[in-house]
Simulated scan of single mutants.
Amino acid sequence: MTVTGIITALIVGLIIGALGRLVVPGKQNIPLWLTLVIGVVAALLGTVIARATGVADTKGFDWIELFFQVVLAAIGVALVAGVGGRRRLTR
C-alpha cells in the first residue's frame, strides 16, 4: 500500500467514524483516535459486505456501501462508548 493509500484510508476512516458518532444519540466520551480506528474498520467491513451482496459495483457513488459503513461505525461507536461508560461507573 502506498503512502497516498494509507492517508486516504485514514481520511475516509475519520469521516466514516464521525458520521457514525453523529448517528449515535447522546454524548460519546471516546477519543478521536478511537473514532478513527472504528471508522477505518467499519469502512473496510462495509466494503466487504457491499461486495458480498453485489452492491459495490454500481454506476456513480455507492450510497448503499456508504450506508453499510456508517451503520457499522455507529454500532462500533455505540459499543465502545457503552463499554467505556460502564467501566467508568464501576470505579
Results as ranks from 00 to 15, higher is better:
Met1Gly: 14
Met1Asp: 06
Thr2Gln: 10
Val3Gly: 09
Val3Ala: 02
Val3Tyr: 05
Thr4Glu: 12
Thr4Cys: 01
Thr4Tyr: 05
Gly5Ile: 10
Gly5Leu: 08
Ile6Pro: 02
Ile6Phe: 06
Thr8Gly: 00
Thr8Ala: 13
Ala9Tyr: 10
Ala9Met: 12
Ala9Glu: 11
Val12His: 03
Val12Cys: 06
Val12Gln: 07
Gly13Trp: 04
Leu14Glu: 04
Ile15Tyr: 09
Ile15Gln: 03
Ile16His: 03
Ile16Cys: 06
Gly17Ala: 09
Gly17Pro: 06
Gly17Met: 07
Ala18Tyr: 08
Leu19Tyr: 12
Arg21Ser: 13
Val23Pro: 06
Val24Trp: 01
Val24Asp: 01
Pro25Tyr: 03
Pro25Trp: 04
Gly26Gln: 07
Lys27Tyr: 14
Lys27Gly: 14
Gln28Tyr: 09
Gln28His: 15
Asn29Pro: 04
Asn29Leu: 13
Ile30Thr: 11
Pro31Lys: 13
Leu32Pro: 00
Leu32Cys: 08
Trp33Tyr: 10
Leu34Ser: 12
Leu34Ile: 15
Leu34Thr: 15
Leu36Val: 15
Leu36Pro: 02
Leu36His: 05
Val37Gln: 04
Val41Met: 14
Leu44Thr: 12
Leu44Phe: 14
Leu45Arg: 06
Leu45Met: 12
Gly46Trp: 04
Gly46Cys: 08
Gly46Leu: 06
Thr47Asp: 10
Thr47Arg: 07
Val48Ala: 13
Ala50Trp: 03
Arg51Tyr: 12
Arg51Gln: 14
Gly54Trp: 11
Gly54Asp: 06
Gly54Met: 05
Val55Lys: 01
Ala56Pro: 00
Ala56Asp: 09
Asp57His: 12
Asp57Phe: 07
Asp57Trp: 03
Gly60Thr: 11
Gly60Glu: 07
Phe61Ser: 00
Phe61Thr: 08
Phe61Ala: 08
Asp62Phe: 09
Asp62Ser: 11
Ile64Leu: 09
Glu65Trp: 01
Leu66Glu: 07
Phe67Tyr: 08
Phe68Cys: 00
Phe68Thr: 03
Gln69Pro: 02
Gln69His: 03
Gln69Thr: 06
Gln69Lys: 14
Val70Leu: 04
Val71Arg: 01
Leu72Gly: 01
Leu72Glu: 03
Ala73Phe: 02
Ala73Glu: 01
Ala74Leu: 07
Ile75Met: 10
Ile75Leu: 15
Val77Asn: 05
Val77Met: 08
Val77Asp: 02
Ala78Arg: 06
Ala78Ile: 05
Ala78Ser: 14
Leu79Gln: 02
Leu79Cys: 15
Leu79Tyr: 09
Ala81Trp: 02
Ala81Asp: 13
Gly82Lys: 13
Gly82Thr: 09
Gly82Cys: 10
Gly84Thr: 08
Gly84Tyr: 08
Gly85Lys: 14
Gly85Ser: 14
Gly85Asn: 13
Arg87Lys: 12
Arg87Asn: 11
Arg87Leu: 15
Arg88Pro: 05
Arg88Ile: 08
Arg88Gly: 08
Leu89His: 06
Thr90Met: 13
Arg91Asp: 11
Arg91Cys: 03
Arg91Trp: 10
